[in-house]
Design a protein around this nucleic acid. Structure first.
Lengths: 192, 192
DNA sequence: GGCGACATGTAACTAGTTACATGATTGA
DNA sequence: TCAATCATGTAACTAGTTACATGTCGCC
């Protein structure tokens, strides 16, 4: 039940068409709640049906190519109610950790390369977040809304920092294990 | 496509019945790939159908209450192939971050309490991981398999550490914002 | 011998993903 | 003017969740 509320939040920040929402879900909002355009269009239809949003009249019948939506009072109320809801933190479900566990049983295979690839991806994501922080959250710009946005971004930064640190460790560990295996294969383990 | 491989890994570590697997997915393996018993039974059926596992004969027709499964050679091969696969890291999708973003638009509501609740949950998860680490990964016990298991656990520990640190910050920030709001409501903002 | 729990499932639903379809617009 | 791309969507599939059903076992 999070996607509709992500969309309501986005539309409150700025009324948008399906495409504009899709773009915004590729950055900013999408950094912590990703969605494809198919999901977004489907959900926009449902939200309109439920009377929580409406297509902006001027854009709709002005036969412009895109129709923009805005949040109705009922939509805002629904969002307020949702912010106050309790929800259990969802458990970790990470395929990479699972692969490491499997590797402990059947061998590391090509896992080292995959770990290095992920490390690069997380490094570049971290760099992107840091750029945004430098650009949008200079020390002088601290409003109430801004502080919450910064808090969210800082969560992303710390999370990516965690991944890069941990992946560096993982890459090192797997490389060492592979080296030991190779040594054994070549019969030089006695010299170690 | 991860659940079947999680199950294959678990069964390679130790052949088990559906119930035993369910139990193991509540601890150890479940720490990074959770699954309900319904998912597990469904998936066991599929894996048996596909010829990757089989019910252990002695338990199966010995009319014991539970039937245990073991991995067939084809199953092990499938797992080896999967360990070598590439997979994009999945993006962050966290409802709590989303709520903070929504709170920036419609107000924090009861979010402070929810943040404190999550903080407690993550603290206790972190404590549990640390106990496991102290018990199972004493410095003297470092085998090859063990190092990978420790790596995975250490990922969990660092991740929970991140959440507790970040949530402490979030709780503080939201409390401050709420305090400012109350001050404004009471008309004492001019004195601040 | 009936009752509660344990164990194993089935069914229905929801969210998310992948693949494809269609009309408008735009630039070669 | 025709292909490419943009914008909006539909359809089918997959994974995960929630609710319910059935059989068996031990015990009171």
């Amino acid at each position: 039940m999070s996607l509709p509320h992500a969309i309501l939040t986005a539309l409150l920040e700025k009324p948008s068409s399906g495409l504009e929402l899709t773009r915004r879900f590729d950055r900013s909002i999408g950094f912590f709640w990703s969605a494809t355009h198919q999901q977004i269009y489907r959900e926009l239809g449902r939200l309109e049906q439920a009377g929580l949003i409406r297509a902006l009249p001027q854009a709709a019948d002005g036969r412009g190519p895109r129709k923009a939506y805005e949040v109705l009072p009922a939509g805002r109320e629904a969002l307020v109610a949702w912010v106050g809801e309790q929800q259990e933190p969802k458990q970790i479900r990470d395929a990479l950790l699972l692969r490491l566990r499997a590797a402990a049983v059947v061998g590391t295979g090509g896992l080292g390369a995959e770990l290095r690839r992920h490390l690069e991806l997380h490094r570049s994501q971290l760099a992107e977040y840091r750029e945004i922080e430098a650009r949008d959250f200079a020390p002088e710009r601290v409003g109430e809304e801004n502080r919450l946005h910064h808090l969210v971004l800082s969560g992303g930064i710390q999370l990516e920092s965690f991944w890069t640190t941990w992946l560096e460790d993982a890459v090192r560990t797997v490389a060492e294990l592979d080296a030991v295996d190779n040594a054994v294969d070549n019969g030089v383990d006695k010299e170690v």
